[in-house]
């Protein structure tokens, strides 16, 4: 994540066609491998099966890599924007995740929330 470089991968839908809704742990696994960086990989998810598939993908990673991955509780869209920004500043994984998760409580409408 250092040096202003941020790799972002995506893994939505099933492997086959990329059109069927759902998640595929193997697709998530290859996305992690694709963007792999020794500083770590932050995983952002939407609801439902995404969380279980992401956990399953982590189970299938080799131990040293798994340790450097973090499942984030951040909202997918807001979290991705905030995380990419902070990662590009060279902040460590845990700090990037902390600001991304904080995006959960940022109101979209002024005066709301």
């Amino acid at each position: 994540m250092a040096g202003g470089q941020v790799e972002i991968g995506q893994a939505g839908g099933l492997s086959d066609d990329g059109e069927t809704l759902g998640t595929d742990a193997f697709k998530i696994l290859s996305a992690i491998e694709e963007v792999w960086c020794e500083d770590g990989v932050l995983l952002l998810m939407d609801l439902g099966s995404a969380v279980m598939s992401a956990e399953l993908a982590l189970d299938m990673l080799p131990e040293q890599r798994r340790q450097k991955c973090l499942l984030s509780n951040a909202p997918l869209v807001e979290g991705a924007i905030v995380a990419a920004l902070h990662a590009s500043l060279g902040e460590p994984l845990q700090a990037v995740n902390a600001v991304a998760e904080a995006a959960l409580s940022v109101p979209k409408l002024p005066g709301a929330g």
């Binding site: 492997s15 759902g22 099966s49």
Partner: peptide
């Protein structure tokens, strides 16, 4: 492996994990 990439919904990782 087949169920993990073939099923898709919550049932995919669940049945996949069951057999794994």
């Amino acid at each position: 492996m087949t169920l993990i990439s073939g099923v898709g919904g919550a049932a995919g990782p669940l049945y996949g994990t069951f057999f794994l």
